[in-house]
Amino acid sequence: MSLLSGARDRFILGENAFGLRPDLGLVASMIEPESRLLDVGCDDGALLEYLVKQQGCDGRGMEISQAGVNACVARGLPVVQGDADRHLVDYPDDSFDYVILSHTMQAVHHPRDVLGQLLRIADTAIVSILNYGHWRARMSMVTRGRMPHTRTLSTPWFETANIRPCTVRDFLDLTRMLGIRVGRAYGISKGTEVALIKPSYEGQSNLFAEQAVFELFRPEAPKKRRGKARG
């Protein structure tokens, strides 16, 4: 079992020339070149460096770990040590075109507030999540009676930073609750296999995507859909 059955729009993430992890490559493809962006939870700065140096973006980062900040600063990237829960408030409204939150949503204390902050400081947010609704995660619970322990969810429960596990459906429910508009949405499985998430088969996406990437817009300002992902 690999891809969504019934999904019409799917593609494989290719190798990219800059050694970006494929899912980060997908995120990068959703960003317009030369835009202003903030990467929240930018880790060692791999994605940010690509966007700044290859795509000509005016990029900033926020990272909680000392090692991550050091790595970023050594790459010449402007990165501020901070965490999404507490320090997004430091940025003025509309500071950026995009704000990126990759693999960080499940680690914040107040996902709802964070989403609000993201769409306050930028009009488009690119958010990726780990999907706890994936069938392997479900099997882990059902058959073994244990917390999910899979390829993408590999840290034991007592050590994981993921304090807010959610599924694709949970996440989309929250966007609806907050009136956030969802633009492009992709499910990723096996690291490189991508399928569009559409309302008609949200349930299937929830079963087969190991991670998911969403393009989110402010409730009040409808935005034109951008072109297809460049993969």
Binding site: Q66, V73, V80, P92
Partner: peptide, 13 residues
């Protein structure tokens, strides 16, 4: 940040 400047910041333990 308010001025949109290029800034890095770290608080060292």
């Amino acid at each position: 940040n308010r001025a949109g400047a290029n800034v890095s910041f770290v608080e060292i333990e």
